[in-house]
């Protein structure tokens, strides 16, 4: 009887020890809940951000949700208010307006909910919005980088840049991303003595309208030396527009943003010289990690995820390999 009790005691101690070991392998952010409040909508871009977010959540063992507001600022603000009411351990917010987010972010921080910026930041950075840090592409720098790459290409070809004209189609005229990217392109242009720039209203996210506008513009403006899509759809339609306007590869130096199949195809065919990959997977991935680390240690790092210049066959091959996995 005594032995039985002893055996029972040993087994119990072993089980408790094993349980403790098991608990020791508990994932670091278990029990935490984070939320990503974005303006995203009809755009595959956000599926990749979400994939990054989910992978980080799986690794850390936390719960995460993402809100897509279809570019509706009022809806995005409603989603943010709902997220705050849920009292999560942190919110990652797309700061896509310089004034609309000032008070909501301050109120959330005052309520003890950490808020970090992702994807798009206040144009004044931390001076314009109190978010704790920012993870995403520096849009101005990305515009500057693509501008430098394309203008250098033209210079190497011996094109007279003093008389060059830069056309920049955009999906949503006035949207923050387009404005800031075009500023970067203009800054690069100034270094090469280029002074003629025009932003073109591409007519929205619909691809046929975009192609129609780009083609018509190219036909009407034979002086166009560069055509730089400010967004993914504007860049996607460049190759077909250039072909429809009767341009040969490299006749108009073209480039832009994001890595859709048509853009990569244009790169292979030589119609597009370079494009910038935002590496948006990292925006979702790092957002979760940074919120976790803020909760644990109070870290608030600023991370620039963008500026990956795609202009070679090796890089195209890499992206085409990762694209079906929703990583690029």
């Amino acid at each position: 009887m005594k032995n039985n009790w002893l055996m029972f005691l040993v087994i119990t101690v072993l089980m408790v020890s094993m349980s403790s070991l098991a608990f020791g392998q508990e994932k670091p952010a278990e029990g935490m809940y984070f939320r990503l409040v974005t303006h995203g909508g009809d755009d595959p871009f956000w599926a990749v951000v979400q994939q990054g977010m989910l992978e980080a959540a799986k690794e850390l063992g936390c719960q995460v949700d993402i809100d897509l507001a279809g570019s509706d600022l009022a809806l995005q603000q409603k989603r943010f208010a709902e997220a705050v009411a849920q009292k999560p351990n942190g919110i990652a917010l797309v700061v896509n307006d310089d004034t609309a987010w000032d008070k909501p972010v301050e109120d959330a921080l005052a309520a003890g909910i950490p808020v970090i910026g992702i994807n798009n930041d206040d144009s004044q950075g931390p001076a314009g919005n109190k978010r704790l840090c920012y993870i995403g592409q520096s849009e101005e720098r990305a515009g500057y980088m693509i501008g430098l790459r394309l203008f250098q290409e033209a210079k190497d070809k011996g094109i007279d840049l003093a008389n060059a004209h830069v056309a920049m189609p955009v999906e949503v005229p006035g949207a923050n991303y387009g404005v800031v990217r075009s500023n970067g392109i203009k800054r690069a242009g100034e270094e090469f003595g280029i002074s003629s720039f025009e932003i073109i209203d591409g007519g929205g996210l619909e691809m046929t309208t975009m192609e129609q506008r780009e083609t018509s513009y190219l036909l009407a403006h034979p002086e166009t030396t560069f055509m730089i899509g400010l967004g993914g759809i504007a860049t996607d339609r460049l190759t077909d527009s250039l072909k429809a306007a009767g341009k040969e590869p490299g006749e108009v130096i073209a480039g832009g943003f994001d890595t859709t199949a048509a853009t990569l195809n244009g790169l292979r065919e030589g119609y597009i010289t370079a494009t910038i990959d935002q590496q948006q997977f990292l925006q979702g991935y790092y957002a979760v990690y940074v919120l976790y680390l803020y909760n644990k240690y109070g870290f608030t790092p600023n991370i620039d995820t963008g500026g990956y210049l795609v202009d070679s066959i090796e890089k195209i091959d890499l992206i085409e390999k990762l694209s079906p996995l929703h990583v690029r």
């Binding site: 929205g204 619909e206 691809m207 199949a261 048509a262 195809n265």
Partner: peptide, 12 residues
């Protein structure tokens, strides 16, 4: 014609 499916087809 586009060579791909895109979720933005038909917007508006």
């Amino acid at each position: 014609r586009l060579g791909s499916f895109a979720a933005t087809q038909g917007v508006n």
